[in-house]
Design a protein around this nucleic acid. Structure first.
Lengths: 139, 139
DNA sequence: ATTTGTGCAAATCGTTTGCATCTGA
DNA sequence: TCAGATGCAAACGATTTGCACAAAT
């Protein structure tokens, strides 16, 4: 859950990841990390950038999201369907998925607890456990 | 986990789902349900059909997979990335995902056990819990 | 005969890429 | 200066759709 108080910290974070703190990356990072935890797609972020008079191409948004993900600043969330979601909360946690709206919400890590996890097959190890709790309207 | 001993049972199942037992649907159903639990994509199934001299168009494979899913004969599995996977095992279970190969394996239901599940927000209920255990080679 | 399904090719959607241009160190 | 970034438009892969034809009831 990266947290940045000012542009200097942000610049340092980008530099630390081997990324030049360009105008576009700084602007996107501010949108991404400036308002708590968020779940968004490339399109969402692109639109938001335009609304905020930040001029970035969609291609750059994609590039940036992937670079930030590699740098550990974002996490990809696997949902069925076409779009890729990015989560600004990179800590270990699960998600609610509102099926009607197609949106994600974090679940606090304490709210889910495993009794047992399966043994990985020989030669393999668990890299991550994704849990998606699907929600629908109550009938 | 649908199980069909012969074409008659299969026909009945399709009819029960409001689907005409056409040549193509019967052939695809045999491929899908004739050999235990499977995880496949539209392309996979299409190729397999061609290898078995079953002539179906890719569009029909897509249609059929979705119709079978709606009918409860298949289950979609959410993986990140482009392709959609279908699982012939419709019972409640989790998956291993082999990241290197991009393939799925069932996990026996007993191997995973939740201590606690989160309370759904007001007015919502849990429709399903998807668990994906990601595996990588041991280092 | 009427309804439903099929195949093909074109259309769509999200995403990626090639390449010329620009920018930050 | 010059590697690295950006933007645009074209390319792409998976999936969907429109429509004429074929098959099932």
């Amino acid at each position: 859950m990266p947290e940045f108080r000012n542009d200097n910290e942000l610049q340092k974070a980008l530099r630390g990841a081997g990324l030049r703190p360009t105008r576009q990356r700084m602007a996107l990072a501010e949108l991404l990390f400036g308002q708590g935890d968020r779940h968004l797609t490339a399109e969402t972020l692109h639109e938001e950038a335009q609304r905020n008079a930040v001029s970035v191409s969609l291609a750059t948004v994609y590039n940036t999201l992937h670079q930030f993900t590699e740098a550990g600043l974002l996490r990809e969330v696997a949902i069925e369907g076409s779009k890729t979601y990015f989560d600004t909360n990179t800590s270990d946690h699960c998600h609610f998925f509102l099926e009607r709206e197609g949106t994600l919400e974090d679940i606090s890590p304490e709210a889910i607890d495993f009794n047992r996890l399966p043994e990985p097959p020989a030669g393999m190890k668990i890299s991550r456990v994704d849990v998606l709790v699907r929600l629908v309207e109550q009938d």
